[in-house]
Design a protein around this nucleic acid. Structure first.
Length: 553
RNA sequence: GAGCGCGUAGCUCAAUAGGUAGAGCAUCUGACUUUUAAUCAGAGGGUCGUGGGUUCGAUUCCCACCGCGCUCACCA
């Protein structure tokens, strides 16, 4: 498969990152630019979350598609912009030193001391968290601080231009506001020279030549004349966004659908400044299990930590890749399915022609270089192990120890090991975590009656006589022999059963599952005991008969 | 009020260059030398929200409508 055919397939690919990248190319044809700027925004009053990940991951996919479409001839940059000059609106609930922080309400986040005492400011703290967050996933980005950009003078030219177009911008903004708000609205928010607070005060006069605005402190009625440059003023957020697009030459930025109107207004402002607003689209929001919007305050939905406890970052990327414009429910149950979808796409990739590869999510998730699928060699063939299967296996193994799961896997494919299947090993780890947190707590143990007690004691005694490394079959046969004489468990209808040698009914096994494992059904017992350990099984029986399992559950 | 998304098998969802609808789970049946759910094979199950239009033909394009849900209109 030649590079040529990759390019050709990319030209016509219907995968959304390519559709987006083509919008960018159309944009580029109009404007002479030597590089393309992608931007994602971040508000440092909160912590990075699953939406932050989604936005950066999706933008990165568009960026990569663009690079392929242009043969990497156009330089690309991704700016992760932190709005750290915004005033602190309210004291977050989830921080220490809330009282100290609350004394700095209204000041730029970069002027609020770090409540954790680790950084120069609250913003610096959260900015560092953002970077650590993004670095953890290996995103290629440039961090940019709003405060630094304002203070360094980088925005000065744009701010002056903004001042020159003051009336046009007001004409765009004011109709979008309610009367009472419009009466006092100003796109410029001066930083109070005394208190340091980001002021929302009506602008009494503006002077583009001098580069200043006149305003009055509503509390003291004192009047000030403040330059809009050098970080002495910041902008209201919609003008701010537009100014930033203009000043930085942003070509691409996506946003949630809650920002549709904001994007429209900011785009008009950008045009008023003389810039073509960036390309991009509005992605749908995430919903929880019941279709409600996920919000941090409600605490519904799924956190990124939760996802990464039970599944890989790649599977989360897949979730983000799929249909960004459709509202998707993001809750716990989608995790296993998404993981298996991911594994399925990985399996399919090597045999696909380019046209299909470019529509395959793993191409986008792995920047065009998805890893080879890890398979288990079993006899003649190879098979992939699905996550759902591993979850079953964890339940079967009744263990949160990955080594026990690997014991089962090796029985199936003797050559397999965590060392030569590192990604499968990760999956095993996730499966085990899932078992520990979701399967184990739901176990409902029951007490043994007298007959059951005697049967289990007999099993324990028999296991004690067997060598510790007894095989699954040996254990299985021993179990049959113990149950066979017990009338309750005899099954004369079983295949091959005779009066002299009756079969053993499922009731026996179901009893063991219920008493020892707290499940209604379970694994083939011989296999389970052999892997779980004979001594360990005896200990389990002791605990069950002592009633400890019932109490623990 | 404005904008957006969704409505396909019991459930969750797929189905782009318009051409007789697919998967997973669930259900049922069978196979796996003594029985059991790490597996496999097979089956059943859909007026593709409703009504129009374009077309030889529409789940797929267009319009209207119905239902469900979300977002925005204060701030970011």
């Amino acid at each position: 498969m030649s590079l040529q055919s990759l390019r050709e397939a990319a030209e016509v690919s219907k995968a959304w990152p390519f559709e987006e990248a083509r919008k960018l190319i159309a944009r580029l044809e109009k404007a002479q630019k030597s590089e393309v700027i992608f931007e994602t925004g971040y508000g440092p009053s909160g912590l990075p979350h699953i939406g932050t990940f989604g936005e950066v991951a999706r933008t990165t996919m568009v960026r990569h598609a663009f690079r392929v479409l242009t043969g990497d001839k156009v330089k690309t940059r991704l700016i992760a912009f932190s709005d750290d000059m915004d005033g602190l609106r309210k004291t977050p609930d989830n921080i220490p030193n809330r009282e100290m922080v609350s004394r700095h309400l209204g000041k730029p986040l970069t002027e609020v001391p770090d409540p954790f005492g680790e950084f120069d400011s609250f913003a610096a703290h959260n900015n560092a968290r953002l970077r650590r967050f993004l670095d953890r996933f290996g995103f290629d980005y440039e961090f940019m601080s709003s405060t630094e950009a304002y203070k360094s003078g980088r925005f000065d030219e744009a701010l002056i231009r903004m001042l020159e177009r003051f009336d046009e911008i007001q004409a765009i903004m004011l109709p979008s506001l309610r009367e009472e708000r419009a009466a006092t609205y100003s796109p410029f928010l001066p930083i109070h020279p005394v208190t340091g607070v980001v002021m929302q005060a009506p602008v009494l006069a503006h002077d583009a030549k001098a580069g200043t605005i006149r305003w009055r402190d509503p509390d003291t009625s004192e009047e000030f004349e403040t330059p809009v440059t050098g970080g002495r003023c910041k902008l209201q957020w919609k003008p701010d966004w537009a100014m930033r697009w203009y000043a930085l030459g942003v070509d691409y930025e996506m946003a949630g659908k809650d920002l549709i109107d904001s994007v429209k207004l900011s785009s008009r402002i950008a045009r008023a400044l003389g810039a073509e607003p960036p390309a991009g689209f509005n992605y749908e929001l995430f919903l929880d299990e019941t279709g409600q919007k996920i919000s941090k305050s409600k605490g519904n939905g799924l956190t990124i930590e939760e996802w990464l406890t039970y599944a890989s970052p790649e599977s989360l990327s897949l979730f983000m890749f799929q249909k960004p414009t459709a509202a998707k429910r993001l809750y716990f149950d989608v995790i296993p399915r998404t993981v298996d979808d991911y594994l399925g796409f990985l399996d399919a990739y090597p045999d696909q022609p380019w046209k299909e590869r470019l529509g395959n999510p793993v191409w986008h998730i792995h920047a065009g270089e998805p890893p080879a699928p890890e398979t288990l060699v079993h006899g003649e063939g190879e098979t992939s192990i699905s996550f759902v299967m591993l979850l079953n296996l964890a339940a079967v193994a009744n263990s949160d120890n990955p080594a026990v799961l690997w014991g089962f896997l090796r029985r199936y494919a003797p050559s397999a090991s965590p060392e030569n299947h590192p990604r499968l090993d990760c999956l095993v780890g996730y499966a085990v975590a899932y078992f520990r947190d979701f399967v184990a707590p739901k176990k409902r143990y029951r007490l043994a009656d007298d007959v059951e007690r005697d049967a289990l004691l007999a099993v324990s005694a028999r296991l004690a006589e067997m060598p510790a490394d007894a095989g699954a079959e040996a254990v299985q046969h021993a179990l049959y022999d113990i149950a066979r004489p017990i009338p309750r468990y005899q099954d004369l209808a079983a295949k091959g059963a005779t009066k002299e040698r009756p079969g053993v009914s499922n009731d026996f096994f179901n009893m063991v599952y219920g008493v020892l494992l707290g499940e209604e059904r379970g694994p083939r017992l011989g296999s389970f005991v052999a892997l779980y350990g004979l001594a360990e099984t005896r200990a389990l029986i002791d605990r069950a008969l002592a009633g400890e399992l019932v109490r623990a559950a």
